[in-house]
Design a protein around this nucleic acid. Structure first.
Lengths: 201, 201
DNA sequence: CAGGCACGTTAGCGGGCGCTAACTTGCCGA
DNA sequence: TCGGCAAGTTAGCGCCCGCTAACGTGCCTG
């Protein structure tokens, strides 16, 4: 008795068909856009063909939904964890930046999909993802305002989005190796943020 | 004699059906993605219906092609103009940043389409657009290296892409008014760039 | 060892989409 | 005045795509 749950994640680290499919789909969605990828494309990317995917997902929309929801959760949880391990305003901001940089560098396809394909979600999925994203942004806004007290809230919010754009640009340029890229992006992001204190408002 | 050319731009400032269509299509492509927008959607956005568009464009692909080519040309020409009016390395970099910021703030839909839909171009169109983009990036790389001699070429290239990401994030956040946003983005971009001199390599 | 279930296959449906065809209308210049 | 052309209409073709149906197969368990 007590078998492994049929539709949940496996007990150990095995990639599990579902995750394998999601990874392949993410790559394809990132390259061609949601509507530019067919069911058969995703299937053959994991060695099975078309309709077999429906043994694992209810619909193509559900794949995108699960993909974006899980990204948003990972980001929010990781961000919260950095804040909870607080060690001083500026240090916390640095941790947050570094966390996002690492995630973007290690998951370029997911980052790209999240940036480009939010509009292709079903309404309920989009609501859920947007709620998670808003909480993540909120975390950033608070940390920025703690580290740069001169910044007003709208400024902090706009700055957070700008920094996301800076960091998330990484899938489009691969001229440095991973660690150099991480240092470069972190440095640029931090410089862009700390100078906020020099500006009026 | 000497009538206005039938398929070229009009003599004076009139928006000309073609440009009107391109603007509407850009908005739709930005919101739903190229494949998420139908011919009929574009048509009804300008008050005509579906197939009438083929009086103005050879195909849906041609609309996207013309859209992206013209953006790339505007950016390249504008960038070159700033460099030609050179007034010292750091000042030139500032002009370039400001130029791109202004363009992004005034054409959010175009920026979004260029970022997301390069992969939906036909092969010849994509080649042309990529060539133009590469020359634009090249302009940035040279200006960055002139203003920040410590930066190596791969670093300058990666930094240019990162700054594009930062500036192009503007369609996703509208919490400040236009001019405040322009100042914020310019300040963040410049701070991110000048600190390159602090890093080894 | 028999039954069930997870997982895969191929065939085919229904609908949407890009594009063409055929036709209409109003303006403009000789 | 009237022919021609730019610019729009509707009808419809052909294709592709998401998804379902019906069926096969091997493993795991009671």
């Amino acid at each position: 008795m007590n078998r492994v749950p049929p539709a949940a994640e496996p007990v150990a680290g095995k990639p599990s068909r579902r995750e394998q499919i999601l990874a392949a789909a993410a790559e394809l969605f990132a390259r061609h856009g949601f509507h530019g990828v067919g069911i058969d494309d995703i299937g053959s990317a994991v060695g099975i063909s078309g309709p077999a995917l429906y043994r694992h997902f209810r619909s193509k929309d559900a794949m995108l939904g699960e993909m974006l929801t899980s990204i948003s959760e990972v980001l929010l949880d990781g961000g919260q964890a950095r804040v909870d391990a607080a060690s001083g305003p500026e240090k916390t901001l640095g941790d947050l930046v570094r966390f996002h940089v690492d995630f973007a560098l290690d998951n370029p396809a997911l980052i790209t999909v999240q940036e480009r394909n939010l509009g292709n979600l079903t309404d309920p999925d989009r609501r859920k993802v947007r709620a998670l994203q808003r909480r993540y942004v909120e975390t950033w806004v608070e940390v920025i305002r703690a580290a740069v007290p001169a910044a007003g809230e709208p400024t902090a919010r706009a700055a957070a989005h700008a920094v996301f754009g800076l960091i998330n640009s990484t899938p489009h340029s691969r001229h440095l190796d991973r660690d150099q890229m991480a240092d470069l992006l972190t440095g640029m992001a931090m410089a862009a943020l700390v100078q906020l204190s020099d500006r009026v408002h």
